Amino acid sequence: MSLCRGWDAAGHIVGASWNRSPGEALRWGDREIPRHTAIDPQSAGASAICLAVADDALPRVAHMLARAPWPSPSPLVFHLAGSVSLDALEPLARRGAITGSLHPLRSFPEAILRGGVLDGHLCAVTSDSEDGRRRLQRLARDVGGRPVDLDDGDRAAWHLAGVAGSNFLVAMMDFAEQQMARAGMDVETARAGLTLLAEGALRAVREVGPAKALTGPVARGDRSTLERHRRCLADHPRSSEVYEALVAYMTARLGESSGD
């Protein structure tokens, strides 16, 4: 709903919301958006339909929408899934819809979500037509996104990159907090210090790239420090596996970059 709120603020008319569970109408300031359980784009006069559903639900929703009445013969129907190809919308394309996908390279944690502005984040745009591509690019820009064209066959790699740059990063911060707890640090102190550390590392990545930004015992070949880390994790097999995998990856990448 964050993106819809942003599109509404940008001047697009968000006519209705469909949800499998009944609920109250959406209210954005003085605006009230009807919420229905039955898909009926015709009654809403929809020229564009956004499918913000779970990845596995997309084919089923596409089949349902293909059987619903449409207000025009060729509406734009797009999904927000990062790794799902346009094949999921094939029933809609057969009926004449312009199909596509718009995927923002941004995490949307509900706990801190405010508004729908993407603030310069990349948005992958894929469509089966040039008109669809242009319309999706505009929708991305209207909420502050930076649209980039993405081939349908490259969607899994795009999404994997996003997962690695966001979800994996969060998981590693959790890993780091666990080690801080073993060192006797309280959560608030540990989180503040580690976040500041991570922000500095990410600034370095942005300025010089990952290979030159990497510091620490792997980068300087400090085997004695690595062994002390291993002893610290001796009674924590899961954390040890993560550590060894990361050390192996960093070592291999450093070897590759030194050979360039």
Rank of each mutant, 00 (worst) to 15 (best):
I33M: 07
V61M: 14
A52N: 12
Q42F: 09
R35P: 04
P59W: 13
I39P: 08
E32I: 14
H36N: 02
D56L: 13
R31M: 08
S43T: 14
A44D: 06
L51H: 02
T37F: 13
P59N: 01
L51T: 03
R31W: 13
I39H: 04
G45A: 09
T37C: 14
E32G: 07
V61Y: 10
C50L: 15
A46S: 07
D40Y: 00
A54W: 01
P34T: 08
R60W: 02
T37Y: 09
A54K: 04
P41E: 02
I49Q: 03
L58Y: 10
I39S: 00
A38S: 10
S43M: 06
A54Y: 01
D40P: 05
I33Y: 09
S43Y: 00
C50T: 00
D40W: 12
S47F: 06
S47A: 15
R35M: 01
P41H: 09
A52D: 12
Q42C: 13
D55H: 02
D55S: 09
D55Y: 11
S43Q: 13
P41Y: 06
P41C: 00
I49K: 01
R31H: 12
A48W: 05
R60C: 13
S47T: 15
P41N: 01
A57C: 12
A46K: 04
G45E: 00
E32C: 07
Q42Y: 07
P34L: 13
R31V: 02
R35S: 10
I33L: 13
A54L: 15
P34Y: 01
I39A: 04
D56M: 09
R60Y: 11
D55K: 03
I39F: 10
R60E: 15
I39N: 03
I39D: 00
I39W: 04
T37I: 06
A52Y: 03
I49D: 01
L58D: 02
I39C: 10
V53L: 09
D56Q: 07
D56H: 11
I49C: 13
P34V: 07
A44S: 10
T37H: 10
A52L: 00
I39T: 04
V53D: 08
L51N: 12
S43C: 00
A54D: 04
P59R: 11
A44I: 03
A48I: 04
P59L: 14
G45W: 06
G45T: 06
L51G: 11
T37A: 11
P34K: 06
D56P: 03
Q42E: 15
R31I: 12
E32H: 08
A38N: 08
P59T: 00
I39Y: 02
D55T: 01
S43A: 15
D40F: 07
R31L: 14
A46V: 06
A54P: 06
R31F: 06
R60H: 11
